[in-house]
Amino acid sequence: MASSPKPPCVVCKTPSVTRCSRCKVVHYCSEACQRKDWRTHKIACTPSTIPSSTTSSKGAPPISTTKQPTLPDPSKVLNVTEKTVPKDNRPSLRKPAPQASSTTLKFKYIPSIDNVDENLVIFFHGLGDKIEPNFTKLAKSLQLPQTAAVCIQAPTPVPYLEEEGYQWFPSFNNLTGDLLGPEAPERILQVKNLVRPELVKFLKHCVDHCGFNSRHVVLFGFSQGAEIALDLAAFGGMNLRAVISIAGYLMEESQNANAATSPLTTKVMVIQGDKDTTRTVKEAKERFKPIQRIFGKANVEQRIVAGMGHGMPRDEPGWRPLMEFFANNLEHRSVALENMSDVYEVRG
């Protein structure tokens, strides 16, 4: 009589005689496959109620004459502990707000809408703008789940403006009012000596003091603010989650520099309007090449939005790729599942 086929491993489908020693239902071919499946399997994994004896009450022969080997107990293999903390005593999912003393730059912190501060999105405004009201309003209007936001203001006022506005680096000749180009050394000097160090210090504060994971941090910048966001991600020395750049590219002075972290795995999306009067689509594609070199072609994407000028997206076609990018790059905690008293938390 032919032997019955071995049941497949639920992960890789390899025939296997080993199974979860806790529920004794799900089969695995190896400890590696068991570890890979534990996050999903732990939800349904309950102790087996099958008697350990393999002999029926009528004295029939054992079900199998060979003892079936089992994998190690998942609670030991995966360093699992049962969560029994009463709901009223569970730690808050709110993180401490950044302290004003963490940077000389002015900023506005906005906690998450759902009381779960898992992600952090940092907003950088464009030339001549400020954090309020435009960028704080934008941060709130996105309604991103489990995401806190910080809007940071550039350090230097723009001279001769009728309304208050700020710049990340000197942008105009104080005598003539002409726009400064990459040949003006004061641009990159302010970024290297002031802006970048202050932003790095603030980021480390958000990680060390507030408890954010650097891989859960997304930078969002517009125009000159996008240049600063890309600069921070490339040369700040931290592997962040992602950067969204609206109508902005790396400063021309930094295009040939090397990233401070290698390998750099930060995801980058650049949104460029085909009606942008600051640069043509052809020029925008050339400016995109240094971003590809520094962050890696597999990690970056450029979207040319039809009908969009030099500004924030104003309609659904412009916002759709941004919201999809957020959906793909923001972490999400299953809070309801974590609050179940019989859920097991995997620590190793």
Rank of each mutant, 00 (worst) to 15 (best):
4 S>Y: 15
7 P>D: 12
9 C>K: 06
20 C>N: 08
20 C>Y: 11
24 K>S: 06
24 K>W: 04
30 S>I: 01
31 E>P: 00
48 S>P: 06
51 P>V: 12
53 S>G: 09
54 T>R: 11
58 K>Q: 02
59 G>M: 05
64 S>N: 14
65 T>P: 05
72 P>M: 06
74 P>T: 01
75 S>P: 02
79 N>Q: 11
82 E>C: 00
85 V>C: 04
99 Q>G: 03
102 S>P: 11
104 T>H: 03
105 L>Q: 12
111 P>T: 05
112 S>T: 06
119 N>G: 05
130 K>M: 15
131 I>Y: 13
132 E>N: 12
134 N>M: 11
135 F>M: 13
136 T>A: 08
138 L>H: 05
142 L>G: 00
143 Q>M: 01
145 P>M: 02
148 A>S: 13
148 A>W: 03
151 C>V: 15
155 P>R: 08
158 V>F: 10
164 E>D: 13
168 W>R: 10
172 F>R: 09
173 N>V: 03
174 N>V: 07
179 L>R: 10
180 L>W: 05
183 E>A: 07
186 E>N: 11
190 Q>G: 08
191 V>N: 13
194 L>N: 13
195 V>R: 12
197 P>F: 13
199 L>K: 15
201 K>V: 05
201 K>I: 08
202 F>C: 13
204 K>H: 13
204 K>G: 12
205 H>T: 13
205 H>D: 11
219 L>Q: 04
225 G>A: 13
228 I>C: 06
231 D>L: 15
233 A>G: 10
238 M>N: 01
243 V>M: 02
243 V>G: 04
253 E>K: 08
259 A>K: 02
261 T>Y: 03
261 T>V: 14
270 V>Q: 04
271 I>S: 12
273 G>T: 11
275 K>D: 07
275 K>W: 08
277 T>H: 14
279 R>V: 14
285 K>I: 05
286 E>W: 01
288 F>D: 00
288 F>T: 00
289 K>N: 09
294 I>Y: 03
298 A>Q: 10
301 E>T: 07
304 I>W: 06
308 M>R: 03
309 G>S: 12
311 G>N: 10
311 G>Y: 07
311 G>R: 11
312 M>P: 01
313 P>S: 09
317 P>H: 03
319 W>R: 05
321 P>Y: 10
325 F>V: 07
327 A>P: 00
331 E>A: 10
336 A>P: 00
339 N>V: 02
340 M>N: 12
